[in-house]
């Protein structure tokens, strides 16, 4: 995991940006379309989108005069690995707990 992953996490750690990602998970959008979903200035939304782009959670592609924002599914890989580590961590611990309780309480 690298510095990019830190940026990905930073990008993910905000409710507005999470909402933006949820919107883009459904369909690609221009900034204007995203702005329509928020009670926020265009500049405010743009700032959030920039962080998402830096964290590589979204990609921006020029189409004519429009800039189309899409969810970058690849960008979630490092985050998923991090989550997967703790998923395994807790599976191991809780298995150990269940076995222990079974042993101890049957004595």
């Amino acid at each position: 995991m690298d510095a990019l992953a830190v940026k990905s996490f930073k990008a993910l750690g905000d409710p507005t940006r999470q909402q933006i990602l949820a919107l883009l998970a459904e369909q690609d959008m221009t900034i204007g379309q995203v702005v329509d979903h928020f009670d926020m200035t265009r500049a405010g939304v743009k700032k959030h989108m920039k962080l998402l782009e830096v964290g590589q959670l979204i990609t921006v592609k020029a189409e004519g005069r429009e800039r189309i924002n899409s969810l970058n599914r690849e960008g979630f890989k490092s985050i998923m690995q991090w989550i997967a580590y703790f998923d395994q961590f807790w599976d191991d611990k809780l298995d150990a707990l269940a076995s222990l309780v079974e042993q101890e309480e049957q004595k």
Binding site: G13, L94, A98, V101, E105
Partner: peptide, 30 residues
């Protein structure tokens, strides 16, 4: 994506289970 939820069933009372989560000698074992 930033939350993990797990459940486990233990065949003991909540009081006994509580001990496994909070008491040093029991935490040491798992």
């Amino acid at each position: 994506t930033s939350e993990i939820i797990k459940t486990v069933f233990l065949p003991v009372s909540a009081k006994v289970a509580w001990g496994y989560l909070t008491e040093a000698d029991k935490l040491a074992k798992w």
